[in-house]
Amino acid sequence: MTRASAGGTALAAEPILGLRNVSLHFDDGRTKALDGVDFAVDEGEFVAIAGPSGSGKSSLLNLIGALDVPSAGEIFFRGAAYSGNADLAAFRGRHIGFVFQSFHLIPTLTALENVMLPALGRSWSAAAQRRRAESLLADMGLRDRLHSSPTTLSGGERQRVAIARALINEPSLILADEPTGSLDSANAEQVLEFLVGLRAEKGLTVVMVTHDEGISARADRVIRMRDGRIERAGQPA
């Protein structure tokens, strides 16, 4: 595994995430979305994954997020391989928070209910879920939008709801797939501030897929992908 330094952030000895020779093939191996990817991410690191369309960024994020299983290689979370874990849903629910480009909020639920959604079916009491969701939305500056439908929220507000949703289960790893891709520059900056702030305030690790060189520049480390392989990894230019 290659590990680049994490610009200014104190790193724990054990990486939170490790990929060892990970490949993802489709069509009986004829299409190689990822081919021999090998890297590690430390606790509290902000890593940007950049690269042209079709380079394998989203496939890589799906594998890290346990949404897909690698065709070959292994993925480690705090030293334990999880790619063959039978209960990947429980793993995602416990350790990972997703933020998507197009928010993926449920239109029939309020902002508050959307935030509570990942906690549904967990052992927390409904009151505890609600209190935590309200607190997260307040942190996102949405205290007065708790009961609003996502359809009435601006793009920036929706993405902040999505970030609150990603945090409800207290994950240690935030995976964001082009989180500012659908936002204007002002809202994109605000959302980015929230995500970057998560590191500082909560010590969370953030792995973000982005096309935006401005965002990549603010990461601790940038992994540049091309044709399913890591082309370059290191501190932003």
Binding site: G65, L67, A89, R94, I96, H104
Partner: peptide, 19 residues
């Protein structure tokens, strides 16, 4: 379909989706 994918990404188990 995509919404179910989102629920899975949020940690919903298969049994919860079936329910």
């Amino acid at each position: 379909t995509r919404e179910i994918g989102v629920l899975q990404a949020l940690g919903w188990r298969r049994t919860t989706i079936m329910q």
